[in-house]
């Protein structure tokens, strides 16, 4: 007689979470952050055709890490939903919040009802009229959704990258400064023996949601335009001055306007 093994629901969910988390942590990272002129997406991606960052609608962009076929499915569904809504009602009625909640439902039901969870983490970003109206949503494999405070990192060693962003991100950055910070954060992990790497422009997939642009605000930054933005950052030693040990991560998100590069924030009491 076949023996039925019992596994508690808690155990099943834990196993699924662990499975998804491992898959996501294996890949390369993506960084999304707001700057004065809009929202910047930077992905470490060697392919120029298989995108990790793409346009969903006029003001909405999408970034993902994990399994390509799975997040590509989600991206297609998002574009379809946005286009259908914009056509049925009005272009202004397509919002990042609605899209994020649709993604949360999809990911949540896949996580609890199907054998294998999606090994993806995605970001839905909407650019607003001013930096304080930008919205960044982080959606994880289990369908949970978080509203992020102006910056986020996903995939790979997202925690370490996020710490660098947290310390230095500012909404008043120019595109060049924001890209420099994103490159610094991405290159600071994954090097030999914990050393920083150098990321060449062709290793990066860069796109922006430009606040000032009329209509469709999504624009890819490639080729010469990208090299021109990255090169000044390469002139001075990249990320060499980064402190090796990051300050302990504070539990709460900070108001993102007052930080200076490499200076511990005065309002964070939890420094060493």
């Amino acid at each position: 007689m076949a023996m039925q093994f019992y596994a508690s629901p808690e155990q099943i969910m834990r196993d699924r979470s662990e499975y998804a988390r491992k898959g996501i942590a294996r890949g390369r990272s993506v960084v999304v952050l707001t700057y004065a002129g809009g929202v910047l997406f930077v992905a470490e991606n060697l392919s120029t055709t298989l995108h990790k960052v793409s346009e969903i609608y006029d003001k909405i962009g999408f970034a993902a890490v994990g399994r390509y076929n799975e997040f590509e499915n989600l991206r297609n569904a998002g574009v379809r939903m946005a286009d259908l809504r914009g056509y049925s009602y009005d272009r202004r009625d397509v919002t990042g919040r609605a899209l994020a909640s649709a993604y949360a439902q999809t990911l949540g039901s896949i996580f609890s009802e199907q054998g294998k969870p999606y090994e993806v983490e995605i970001c839905v970003a909407e650019v607003g009229a001013a930096p304080e109206h930008d919205e960044l949503y982080r959606l994880t494999y289990d369908g949970s959704v978080q509203d992020e405070p102006g910056f986020m990192a996903m995939g790979g060693q997202a925690e370490a990258i996020g710490n660098i962003l947290r310390a230095e991100h500012s909404e008043s950055h120019t595109l060049g400064e924001a890209l420099k910070l994103a490159t610094k954060a991405l290159s600071n992990v994954g090097g030999e023996g914990g050393a920083a790497r150098t990321l060449a422009p062709e290793q990066l997939e860069v796109a922006v949601l430009e606040r000032a642009r009329p209509g469709r605000k999504f624009r890819r930054v490639t080729g010469a335009a990208l090299a021109a933005l990255v090169t000044p950052a390469k002139a001075d030693p990249p990320a060499a001055e980064t402190p090796k040990a990051d300050p302990p991560k504070p539990g709460v998100s900070k108001p993102a306007a007052t930080t200076k590069p490499d200076v511990p924030k005065p309002e964070t009491p939890s420094a060493e």
């Binding site: 055709t49 995108h51 574009v79 056509y87």
Partner: peptide, 16 residues
């Protein structure tokens, strides 16, 4: 015309 515009844009976003 509206539907045509949506279709062209939809194709462009899906196919890249």
């Amino acid at each position: 015309m509206r539907l045509f515009q949506v279709e062209l844009q939809h194709y462009e976003k899906i196919e890249g």
